[in-house]
Amino acid sequence: MTAPAAAPYYRRFSLGQRYLHAVLLSTFLGLALTGLTLRFSAAHWAATFAHIVGGFAAIRFFHLFCAVLLTAAFLAHVGNLVYRIAAKRELDLLWGPNSMVPRWKDFVDFYRNLKYFLWLGPKPKFDRYAYWEKVDYWAVFWGMGIIGFSGYAMWFAPFFARVFPGSWLNVALLIHGEEAILAVAFIFSIHFFNGHLRPDSFPMDVTIFTGTQSEEEFKHRHPEEYGRLAHSGELEKLRREPPPLWLRNFARIFGTAAILTGFVLLALTVIAFWNE
C-alpha cells in the first residue's frame, strides 16, 4: 500500500446514481411545488402562486412534465437493476452489504441505535447502507408506486375507468394527495436531517453530488464497510482524487437551494394542513 496523499477520497456513488438523485430531487421539488398548490388550493398563497406561474394550465403542465421525467428516471433505475441482476448476475444487489434489500443486521442496527440514542449502548457499526438509508430508498420506491399509479390513473381517467371502477378515481385523488404530503413531510424533514443536517453531516453531506467521500467520513459513517474493504484489499480500487473545488461548491449551492426550497414547502404544507 502506497503512502496516501494528503486526503484520500473513496468512491461511494456512481455517476448514474448521482444523476438519478439529481433528477429525483429536481422533479420531486417541481412536483411538490405544483402539487401542493393544488392540494392546498384554498390557502391564500396557492392562488397567488398559480397566478404568477401562468395559471392552472401552467401548473398542470409542470406537474405532468416533472412526473414524466421522474417516471423515466424510475424506470431507468429499475431497468438497470433488472439488467444487472438478470444479465450480469450481480447478485450482490439482491442480498448482502451492497444490497438495498433489508437484512437481519438492519433490525439489529435499529435496535442498537435506539439503545445508543438513550445512552444504553455503543454506536452500532454501519455497513454500506445504514437502515435509515434503506428506509429512505424504499419510502421513495413505495411512494413512486402509490403516487405514480394514482397519478397516471387520474391523468388517463377515462382509460383507467375502462378497467377499474370509476369510484377508484375518488380513492386515487385521496391517496395521491395524502401520500404526497407524507413524502413532502418525510423528505423535507427526516431525509434532510438523516442525510444532511444532523451534527455529523451539518450543513450537508455532498457525497451524493460529488460521488466521493473522504477517508475520515468513510471510517466514521460506514465503519463496517471500510473495515471489510480494507481487509479484502478492495479499498484501493475505490480510491479517487478529491473532488475539485468547483464541484464541491456546485454541490453546496445546489444542495442548499434544494434544502431551502424544501423547507419553504414544508412550512407551507404544515401551515395549510393545520388550517384545514
Partner: peptide, 21 residues
C-alpha cells in the same frame, strides 16, 4: 400511515439529534 411513519421517524430524529449533539 402518515401519523405512524412520521411519528416514528420524528421521534427517531429527535433522539438522534440529542445524542449526536
Amino acid at each position: 400511515l402518515l401519523s405512524g411513519v412520521l411519528g416514528l421517524f420524528v421521534l427517531h430524529t429527535i433522539l438522534w439529534l440529542i445524542r449526536s449533539t
